[in-house]
Computed example of a mutant assay.
Amino acid sequence: MKVILVVLDGLALRVAEHGLGFLQALCLAGRGRLYRLECELPSLSRPLYECLLTGVPPVSSGIVHNGVNRLSTETSLFHLARAAGLTTAAAAYHWVSELYNRSPFEPGRDRHVSDTGLPIQHGHFYYADHYPDSHLFDDAEHLRLTHAPDILLVHPMNIDDAGHKHGLSSPEYRNAARRADGLLSHYLPTWLDAGYQVLVTADHGMNDDRSHGGTLAEEREVPLFVFGEGFSLGEATPRQVEICGTVCSLLGLAHDKPWCRELLA
């Protein structure tokens, strides 16, 4: 199976529950399911990118704050997929490139990559938090159409950016989530028709102080939507550290990562 992992940066569960109308419609039609995840601590972006993509929590990975700028020392799902001869791709924030491809990020060299020797072989990486989500989804679709990746990471930033500017309870934050849902309504049916298994989640949530990093429910509780024939759509209590291993299992990779068996058909 091929997999697309969408990480809607900064999306709190409580906003996902009422703001992502298209994804919720698929769930109500029995074509997907929403699960609650509690993110690892600290509830910060770079540590949780590492957690989602390696299955290792921040206190163990050493990526414990956003300023840790170095290559990961863990084995990511990109490393495992490349080693198995699969094709990897990402349209994502430049911190993902710094974790798995090259660090520090040099835009002229690293913004657009196509190199089968890298863990993320094909990528479009951005470095402005206000980079439009519409452009990011177009970047991802370009990668899918051009390279037919087995694993594609799609990582837009506008929800998080709106949260930092306006806070959890603001119309700007909620509307950023609604716009992401609209973009997914355009692409997700095409991805599913192409045979992809799709997971939509977030790294962390957001609070009314226009930040995150701590233990408040709105900072830690995030959604996990799943779509595709590879999923059971049954009862499950997935953990954030199990996303990497679950994706690896969908891809048919041998791995030693924690994973959620109940999620899969």
Rank of each mutant, 00 (worst) to 15 (best):
A83E: 15
P258Q: 09
F227Y: 06
G195V: 03
S97D: 15
G182R: 08
G195A: 04
Y49H: 13
L192D: 12
P107R: 02
F22M: 04
I159K: 02
F231C: 10
R111A: 15
V198H: 10
P42D: 12
V64N: 10
L37Q: 11
M1Q: 10
F78S: 05
L152M: 06
V15S: 12
I63V: 15
Q24R: 13
P156A: 07
L52W: 10
V154S: 10
L184Q: 09
P223Y: 03
E141Q: 13
W95V: 04
D133Y: 02
L77W: 06
L199C: 14
A180D: 15
G252Q: 06
G230I: 04
V200K: 09
L233Q: 05
Q197G: 05
Q240T: 11
G67N: 14
C248Q: 11
F125R: 00
T190D: 15
L145M: 13
Y126F: 08
F105M: 05
Q240R: 11
I4S: 07
L53E: 10
G205D: 08
R210S: 15
D209A: 15
S134V: 06
A140M: 07
G163R: 02
G182Y: 01
L71Q: 03
H94N: 09
S211I: 00
D181Y: 01
R179W: 10
R102H: 09
Q197K: 06
L48I: 06
A217F: 02
G67F: 09
S97E: 14
S114W: 00
H155G: 09
L53G: 07
V241W: 08
L28W: 07
R178C: 09
L71E: 07
Y187I: 02
G19D: 11
Y196P: 13
V241K: 11
R102N: 07
P47D: 13
Q197E: 15
E221K: 01
F78D: 08
Q240S: 12
L153E: 14
H65Q: 12
F105T: 02
L168E: 09
S76Y: 01
G10D: 11
Q197D: 14
D193V: 03
S134M: 00
H255Q: 10
L250I: 08
E218V: 12
R111V: 01
F137I: 01
V198M: 13
W95R: 07
S211H: 07
K2E: 12
H130G: 02
L184A: 08
G245Y: 12
A91Q: 08
P171W: 00
H124Y: 10
Y35E: 08
R239S: 13
R31I: 01
H204A: 05
V59R: 15
R70Y: 00
G167P: 14
P258T: 07
P189A: 01
S43G: 12
L199K: 13
E219H: 00
R31N: 10
Y100W: 14
L192K: 06
T116H: 02
A89M: 06
K165R: 15
R14D: 15
G213R: 03
L188R: 04
L11K: 04
P107M: 02
C260V: 05
V3D: 12
V3G: 10
E221S: 05
